Amino acid sequence: MIYELRIYTILPGRIDAIRKRFSDHTLGIFARLGMQVCDFWEDLEEHPKLYYTMNYESMEERTRQWEAFSQDEEWNEVKQKSELDGKIVERVEQIFMKKADYFKSPT
């Protein structure tokens, strides 16, 4: 299993736009395409950042899912409409991780 941490730095004044885009559209599109979000966070100190993790069986599956997402008609329409007032995301960082064999979850 591969985990991806995605960190979105949002342009000034656009945090509400990204919140709305994720809550109203993006998370539903991910689900429809079989893309699994593990968890989702906002910055505690209110920096304009979002963080979320996704999991995949392999890097090949990840590549297929993101290609399907980038070509999805609904996503492209949502993105275009949500950016009528300007771009929302300044940058996206991606960190790929795997579980550490030596860590056992306390649950």
Rank of each mutant, 00 (worst) to 15 (best):
Ser58Arg: 14
Glu67Lys: 11
Arg64Thr: 02
Glu67Tyr: 00
Asn55Ala: 10
Asp24Cys: 06
Glu73Arg: 09
Asp43Cys: 12
His25Lys: 05
Thr53Asp: 00
Glu45His: 08
Ala31Trp: 11
Asp72Glu: 10
Gln71Val: 02
Lys49Ala: 06
Ile29Asn: 08
Tyr56Glu: 08
Ser23Leu: 00
Glu73Pro: 00
Thr26Asp: 08
Gln71Tyr: 03
Gly28Trp: 10
Arg19Gln: 10
Glu42Met: 06
Lys20Cys: 02
Leu33Met: 13
Arg62Tyr: 02
His47Gln: 11
Asp39Lys: 02
Met35Thr: 03
Lys20Trp: 01
Gly28Cys: 05
His25Pro: 04
Lys20Leu: 02
Thr26Met: 10
Ala68Met: 13
Asp72Asn: 15
Gly28Thr: 08
Met59His: 12
Thr53Asn: 07
Asp24Phe: 02
Ala17Leu: 10
Leu44Gln: 13
Asp16Asn: 13
Lys49Gly: 02
Glu74Ser: 05
Arg21Ser: 07
Asp43Met: 04
Phe40Asn: 04
Phe69Arg: 06
Leu27Asp: 12
Phe30Glu: 09
Ile29Cys: 11
Phe22Thr: 03
Glu45Asn: 11
Ser23Glu: 13
Ala17Val: 07
Thr63Asp: 10
Val37Thr: 12
Leu27Ser: 10
Gln36His: 14
Trp66Phe: 15
Arg62Met: 11
Glu60Gly: 01
Lys20Met: 01
Met59Trp: 07
Tyr51Cys: 13
Ser23Gln: 06
Leu27Phe: 05
Tyr56His: 15
Glu42Gln: 01
His47Asn: 12
Thr53Trp: 07
Met35Trp: 08
Met54Ile: 11
Glu42Arg: 07
Ile18Trp: 10
Cys38Pro: 00
Glu73Met: 05
Tyr56Ile: 01
Met59Phe: 12
Arg62Lys: 15
Asp39Asn: 07
Met35Asn: 10
Asp72Met: 13
Val37Gly: 02
Glu42Trp: 00
Gly34Arg: 14
Trp66Ile: 09
Tyr56Asn: 08
Met35Cys: 09
Met54Asn: 11
Tyr56Phe: 15
Met54Ser: 12
Arg19Ala: 01
Gly34Ala: 14
Met54Pro: 00
Met59Ala: 08
Arg32His: 15
Leu50Ile: 15
Ser23Ala: 01
